[in-house]
Design a protein around this nucleic acid. Sequence first.
RNA 1: GGGGAGAUACCAAAGCGGUCAACUGGGGUAGACUGUAAAUCUAUUGGCGUAGCCUUCGUAGGUUCGAAUCCUGCUCUCCCCA
Length: 299
Amino acid sequence: MKNTLIVLLGPTGVGKTDLSIELARKTGSEIISADSRQFYGEMEIGTAVPSPEQLSAVKHYFIRFLSVHDYYSASIYERDVLKLLPELFGRNKIVIMTGGSAMYIDAVCKGIDDIPDVDPAIREKYNRMYLENGISSLRIALKVLDPDHYSKVDLRNHKRIIRALEICETTGRPYSSFLRKEKTARPFDIVTAGLNREREELYGRINRRVDEMIDKGLEAEAEKLYPLRHLNALNTVGYREFFGFFDGSISREKAIELIKRNTRRYAKRQLTWWAKDQSIRWFHPDEKEKIFKIIGDIS
RNA sequence: GGGGAGAUACCAAAGCGGUCAACUGGGGUAGACUGUAAAUCUAUUGGCGUAGCCUUCGUAGGUUCGAAUCCUGCUCUCCCCA
């Protein structure tokens, strides 16, 4: 049997955590989290990290190992995971990766092009350009620096344009010249199982989970992080809405309502991303036998 | 019992004689996505065989070439007085 990475993905709130732990115990494997917000130590309640019991039942990696002040990215995650995997495969032929951050999962499973890091000052420069002169100034710059990319990007999405511009300026080469669009082969097998539920069922779970988070003290957690609200890591559902409440711009009730709505929207975006991925085999979380059978088929 | 205000699409809310299948927001749905991505951005939202046709603006009538918009009855909601 070959070393196999079992990827258990699905929209937020679908029930990945419970199943991943069950799966891990059954196979004696360890779990890599692919959840870009569970990386940060300061956030716990709002990101629904596994409980202490769950964490002690199975060894987890990439949970609360960063600070919200740290810089991190899908590319660094790819590198870190690939570095860790040989060690995990040394102990067990199966490793489970579970989470909902699609770009991070893709970085590990399909590879992400190697693009130099950007000087924060350069990023800052373009952010300012956007704020002061609007998106048209970004478009004009991109048209000059990378006409190829200019014809392909969503010209209404400033983040896309800024990213391209900062790479052009940092490297002196067009951003598009770094994009190979090839899948990278990995020295292990990858089996991807997607979890999903009826939309109504999923949304009901999300709404309920938000209420549970509130009961557990999400508001206090957000309040502690309020002074750091400008950090990108805190531009996160469950926190930003509370920041609005602390600002006095919305009511507490409204904030909670928005957390639910934004979480639902996030779940939808996740599903959109995966909809085109033909390698995913989809299951309802209750179809455990079917999911466990995958493992049987591997070994 | 008397007086006043109002009933618009899933919700809220504009429109006050034609250019209205109806502004806008919410919610829903669909989509994009190579670097802090739980981010950022887009489309669509009465029905249909979508050029175009059909049925809508509480309800029943009426006025008019033409009504969500004007008039009348009825039903319901809200507010004030009793």
